[in-house]
Design a protein around this nucleic acid. Structure first.
Length: 347
DNA sequence: AAGTGACTCAACCGCAAAAGG
DNA sequence: GCCTTTTGCGGTTGAGTCACT
């Protein structure tokens, strides 16, 4: 379909609107309405194209536009609607009176998306970042397994590591292990809790992810919708500045529901939860009109998760060695990520 | 106080669908 | 049914602002 530019470039102003231009547009629309955007600027005495006028009116000058910060309810709605609709900003906006698609799009990109990422949730799929879990499991095996079971050299030669991020991580691990060999060789068989306690996670999500992988809290396998809701409230109150508290409570629940059904669907799961407990966390219940934070997780659990470009597809190919290492010894299962690894590189 | 990088958000761009002749 | 015009949408940009050094 041939397209003619909506306006002549010459002689028409671009860029920020002045108060005078705003007033002209408001006055004209209040008098005549906005029938034809193409002829409107000329009639209103504006050196703008119709497209620019329409955008200015719909996104800024319209009298019913709500200004100010998004409320918790609006934020919940956006997340829930996005999990269903994707980037259909205008459709999402139609469910939020007074908010424009542009505003919602901006808010998503600058706030919600980052929050979800920092919580270990893929904002595209609304699923837990399984690549982080996978990395965590690899780290677990690599750092504290006995050398006879697993080592980083082996990690570097593993088939599933096709992702360059994992390769970077593996390389970093190799380097950090060399450092540890020099400094911590005294603790060959058992990790030293004092030393580990001194190592701080850069990302609390990972800490929880790692901990939960190896030490599942079975009490979390219950219906959590109300709890999740209160967690979101906490998160919102903290304005995203203190995610650790939220994440530590929230992420294990995500992992509980998600890793069970996806991580190793055919064979024995890492933690072998009862099936019924997994299903109670299914959030795709359209009859639930109240927002549950589980709605963030919208991807059907039965489908393989194709994460975004910075993510890694996890196919559940866990070797017998690794599986054993997860479940055989609680000592070996505890681990932490060295500071040398920048978790943000994987987010 | 100046420099720099990160962040925000209004505005633009290109495309596609809808509408009209 | 075809072509042109208009409208709407989603992705992206960049100027302004803020925070930190």
């Amino acid at each position: 379909m041939g397209r003619v530019p909506c306006c002549e470039k010459n002689g028409l102003k671009k860029g920020p609107w002045t108060p005078e231009e705003d007033q002209k547009l408001i006055d004209y629309i209040q008098k005549h309405g906005y029938g034809n955007w193409r002829t409107l600027p000329k009639n209103a005495g504006l050196q703008r194209c119709g497209k620019s006028c329409r955008l200015r009116w719909t996104n800024y000058l319209r009298p019913d536009i709500k200004r100010g910060r998004f409320t918790l309810e609006e934020e919940e709605s956006i997340i829930q609607l996005h999990s269903i609709l994707g980037n259909k900003w205008s459709t999402i906006a139609s469910h939020l009176p007074g908010r424009t698609d542009n505003e919602i799009k901006n808010y998503w990109n600058t706030h919600i998306r980052k929050k979800l990422l920092s919580m270990g949730i893929d904002p595209v799929t609304h699923s837990p970042r399984l690549d982080l879990l996978y990395i965590s499991s690899i780290l677990n095996s690599s750092l504290y397994a006995n050398s006879s079971n697993f080592n980083i050299q082996r990690l570097l030669t593993m088939q599933p590591i096709e992702n360059t991020e994992l390769l970077k991580l593996a390389s970093s691990l190799l380097f950090s292990q060399q450092c540890e060999d020099q400094n911590l060789c005294a603790q060959n068989d058992q990790y030293n809790p004092q030393i580990l306690n001194q190592i701080q996670f850069q990302n609390p999500v990972q800490q929880v992810a790692c901990t939960e992988l190896v030490e599942p809290n079975m009490s979390s396998f219950t219906d959590l919708s109300s709890q999740q809701h209160s967690l979101l409230n906490d998160w919102h109150r903290n304005n995203g500045t203190s995610l650790s508290t939220f994440s530590e409570d929230y992420i294990p629940q995500l992992l509980s529901s998600y890793s069970y059904s996806n991580y190793n669907s055919d064979n024995q799961n890492l933690m072998d939860p009862p099936l019924s407990e997994t299903t109670t966390l299914n959030s795709n219940n359209s009859s639930n009109k109240n927002f549950s934070f589980a709605s963030v997780l919208s991807t059907p659990s039965s489908s393989p998760i194709e994460l975004n470009s910075s993510s890694t597809f996890i196919n559940g190919s866990i070797t017998e060695d690794e599986r054993e290492s997860y479940g055989s010894s609680s000592n070996m299962l505890k681990f932490e990520i060295p500071e040398i690894l920048d978790v943000n590189e994987f987010m």
